[in-house]
Structure formats: C-alpha cells, structure tokens
Design a protein around this nucleic acid. Structure first.
Lengths: 193, 193
DNA sequence: GATTTAAGTCAACATAACTGACATAAACGA
DNA sequence: TCGTTTATGTCAGTTATGTTGACTTAAATC
C-alpha cells in the first residue's frame, strides 16, 4: 500500500482534511475542492483521448473522425441532423470528416424510408472494426477506473456525469443513448474480442 | 418524479438491468455499459467547456488560453516546462498563446531564483480576475453535479477521475495539484464572490 | 404551386495543434 | 576553462478542425 506521506504515491487529495482546518458543513464544498475536480476532469479527458488518437494516425484520421464513427457505429441509422446536435459542430465541419469516412468505406448512408430527404448513417464492416479497435483502450481504461473507484461507484459516477450535462440537453442525450445495439439487439453483451 | 418509462425523463441507463437478462458477475461490466460511460464523459466534457468558451470570445481568447491561464493562476510560479508537461502540447503551441496572455497583461514571468534559465509564470491581478470569471460557471456546474450524484459520491468520483489518468502521469499530476493556493495559503476557502 | 426542410457544397477564414530548424543564455561536467 | 547540455524562445510551413455566409438540390408540407 502506498505511503500516504510519499508525494509520488499518496492520493491526489488529502483524505480527512488538513489538520487544523475545521470540517466544512455537509454538502458544502470549497472552490478549491471544486477546482481540484475541474483539474481531474481535464487530466482524465486528456488521457482518455490519447490512445485512440495514436491509432487514428495510422488511418490519416483525427479525433473528429473518431467521434463521428463512434456515434454512427453505436447508434446506427442516426441522421446527419442527429449527429450535428450531438457533436455541436456545424454542418460544414461535419461534412468534411463524414465525406472522408464515406469515401474510405467506413460509413454508408441510406435515404430515410419515411422521409427520403434524411440520410441515415450506418457503419460498414470496416467501420465497425475500426470503431471497436478505437474503443478497446478506452473501455479498458474505464473498466479499470470504475474498479478502482470501488464498489457502488458506478452509480455515483454515472449520476455525476449525467448531471454535468446541460439540463436542456439531457432528454436528447437520453434519447440518443437509448438507440444503441445494446438497447435493441444483444442485451449489451457486445464483446471487444 | 420522472416516469422511468418516459424516454425523455427516465435515467440514462436502466436500473436493475433488462428483464430476462441474467445479472452479470459482480464487478464485471459489459462493453455496452462501459461505452455508455464513454459517451457520458464526452457529453459531460462537451458541456463543461461551453460556458468559459463563450466568455473567452469577448477577450479574443480561445480554450487554449483558458487552460494556460487556469494552471498559471492556480499553480503560481510553475515553469514553462511544467506547463508543457501538463498540457501535453509543443513548446511552439504553448508559446503562441502564452505570448498573447503576457502581451495583454494577464500573465507575467520571472527568471527562476535558483536556475535563472527557468521562467516562472504568475498571473497578474487581471489574470486572476479573468481566471475566476472563467472558473465560476464550471464550479457551479461541478458543485451541482456532485450534489446530484448523492452523498458520498465525491470520493467515488474523485477516485474514478484519478484512475482515468495514465498511471505514469499520476505522480506528476499529484505534484502539480499539491502546489495550489489552497494547499499553501488559505486552507482552500478561496471564494468566487 | 409556393414554401419549408434536410442535406450537401463552395469559399474564405480562425484557432490550435503539429514538425523541423535554429538562437540564446545559463548551468553543468570533464 | 571550455565544450555540452538544458530551458526557453522563435521562424517558417503545415495540418486538423472549427467558424460564417451563400447557395443548390431534392423532398416534404402547406
């Protein structure tokens, strides 16, 4: 077990507070504590994106392609308008990366069956394979981090992340996340292999 | 209370599992569950950065300036090399935004007292004020999200975020986070006002 | 038939990252 | 002391990803 006084291995935030500092009221957090969470979120996200970024270089793709491929793969059949709303970028920005993913054979589009102006987006077999490869290190990282967070942390972390989303976006996020292979096909037991 | 079956207001992940699906072993998580965490992290970070991004426009600054100003403000006296290691960008990339922050009077630099090649970075009064203004909406969001996550979630979330950081980076992150006004000056009771 | 909507495209531009090469000053080592 | 390494800064060119604004096409809708 790590020595709590060793600056290289102790927990990033002192447990039990600083000696001589009276405990704050339950539920009140100092700005300094909150800033520590802000920094941890920055570091977590910084490293969360690094593994896939490295893989993407081999395909002449960037993080933008990963985001598009991820959402098309996990929420097959979503429309261009859905993607724009999820990513919060302009049609022109999306257009560039989406075109490249289509041209290189990772995504295909189909006219909507009810409204034929709509373009429904689907991954090809190559698209599914690449998405899986990009997700693999992130899934490992998440699994390990949830394990490290301790039993019961899943729900706390999930509620925290949900509450970090703009309130007015939550219904849309919820709706997007409800349309996934896990929710519709195979009971969530997709394997990375 | 929200109807758990209403797709617009139910929790983003079903609680208690899907009927007919056998409970997984304790501690094992399906890839679909982990992918949901990946998406929540994306959405959380997407919205976490939007409030300060809007403020930055009024100053002709971007997110890169925010990151630099934040770390200089919260960890006064850190060196250029520290900043490069924290941000994981090149010297040239940092140089551009740092120069602008210095030219516009938000950051000053001082030669290191022991090694005079080093440049120690400090916020000016204007820098501190801007950092505080940029942090304010993020602190509100974090406070509310931790509240929403429920009692005891702080520690779970903190452990989760720490474990999301690359293992070899944790000592450096720990060391950076130990040098903050909260850790050295006023017992963490900095106020946003 | 006119209007609106979903998507796509063209052009110009801004930001923030990158690589590679080189300069300066200070510290360090033989 | 002198050569080397280190910390920082800078110049030049490139790439990735975002922006605004204008316009087109096809299909749905009023």
């Amino acid at each position: 077990m790590a020595d709590i006084n060793d600056p290289l291995t102790r927990p990033l935030t002192a447990k039990g507070g600083t000696p001589g500092v009276p405990a704050r009221k339950a539920g009140r957090r100092s700005n300094a504590e909150l800033l520590a969470f802000a920094e941890l979120l920055f570091f977590a996200y910084r490293d969360f994106t690094r593994d896939p970024d490295a893989i993407l270089q081999d395909f002449d793709f960037g993080r933008a392609h990963h985001r598009v491929l991820h959402f098309v793969n996990r929420h097959s059949g979503l429309r261009v308008a859905d993607l724009l709303d999820v990513l919060k970028i302009t049609k022109q920005s999306l257009g560039r990366v989406l075109k490249q993913l289509i041209d290189k054979g990772y995504i295909v589009q189909r006219a909507g069956s009810v409204d034929r102006r709509e373009r429904q987006l689907y991954p090809t077999e190559a698209g599914r394979a690449l998405a899986k490869r990009l997700a693999a290190p992130q899934l490992l990282r998440l699994a390990e981090a949830l394990r490290a967070a301790g039993p019961g942390a899943d729900e706390a972390v999930r509620r925290f992340l949900e509450a970090m989303i703009n309130a007015e976006e939550r219904p849309k996020v919820s709706s997007i996340m409800a349309t996934s292979p896990a929710a519709t096909e195979n009971n969530g037991e997709t394997e990375v292999s």
